[in-house]
Write a protein that binds this DNA or RNA. Structure first.
Length: 188
DNA sequence: TACTGGATTCACT
DNA sequence: GTGAATCCAGTAA
C-alpha cells in the first residue's frame, strides 16, 4: 500500500483542499477519512500570508506536514502544497476508522464524535505534535487514496465509509468560507 | 527583552 | 453563549 506521492501535492491549496476530502490519513495504528479541510494560501488569516521562519516550510515544500502550536495548548496539522508559493491545507476533521480505542485514550473521552471533529482534536487523537513538523507525507504518517486503501485493508474489514456512529459535516473551506461538497449532514 | 495575540477547546452558566 | 486556559512565535522597543 503506497501513500499519495509528493507529486500529488504540487497543486495550489485551494485546488487540493476538496481533493483531500475522502482520502484516508493514517498514523501508526490510527486512521480516518478526511471530512473537513481548509485551504490556506494568500489569506491574511493564514501563516502563508506572511512567511516567517515558522511558516517557511509552506513556501519551501509541498507534500510535507506543517504542524504548529497555537493557543498555548493545541497542535494543528497542515499539508504543504504548491512549492514556491506559500500554501497549505489544514486538516480540520477526520472520521475515525482504525485505532479508535487509542484515540479515545488520547482524547480522554468515549464520545466517538468528539474524537477528531476539530483540527486540534485530530492532532491529539492521532498523537500529532511538533515532532511531525516538516516531515514528508508518507511512511508512518501518510495520506492514502480511499480506493487504494479499500483494496487492501479497510474493505476487507468492511469499515470504509462507515461512520462508526460519528456524524461529521462533509465540507471543505476555502479562505475561511465553508463550501458544502458532500451530502453527509451537509450544513454550513 | 517584554509584550501581544492566536487557523482552539472545553467547562460552565 | 461566554470566558478561561495556556504558551509559542512574532514584533516592537
Amino acid at each position: 500500500m503506497k501513500s499519495l506521492p509528493q507529486k500529488w501535492f504540487e497543486g495550489d491549496a485551494v485546488t487540493l483542499a476538496p481533493k483531500l476530502l475522502g482520502k484516508v490519513v493514517k498514523k501508526g495504528s490510527c486512521s480516518g477519512i478526511i471530512v473537513e479541510t481548509e485551504a490556506y494560501a494568500n489569506d491574511p488569516a493564514s501563516h502563508a500570508y506572511k512567511v516567517t521562519k515558522r511558516s517557511l516550510p509552506m513556501l519551501e515544500t509541498h507534500g510535507h506536514w506543517y504542524v504548529y502550536f497555537t493557543y498555548g495548548m493545541h497542535w494543528c496539522a497542515n499539508v504543504t502544497t504548491n512549492k514556491g508559493t506559500a500554501g497549505a491545507v489544514l486538516i480540520r476533521a477526520v472520521e475515525p476508522v482504525e485505532g479508535i480505542d487509542v484515540m479515545k485514550r488520547r482524547r480522554k473521552t468515549d464520545a466517538a464524535r468528539n474524537l477528531c471533529n476539530g483540527p486540534a482534536k485530530f492532532c491529539q487523537a492521532f498523537g500529532v505534535t511538533g515532532h511531525e513538523n516538516v516531515r514528508p507525507v508518507g511512511g508512518d504518517f501518510a495520506i492514502y487514496d480511499a480506493a487504494e486503501i479499500a483494496k487492501n485493508d479497510i474493505a476487507t474489514s468492511g469499515r470504509i465509509g462507515i461512520s462508526q456512529g460519528v456524524e461529521l459535516p462533509w465540507r471543505f473551506y476555502i479562505k475561511g468560507n465553508p463550501f458544502v461538497s458532500g451530502k453527509k449532514n451537509a450544513s454550513v
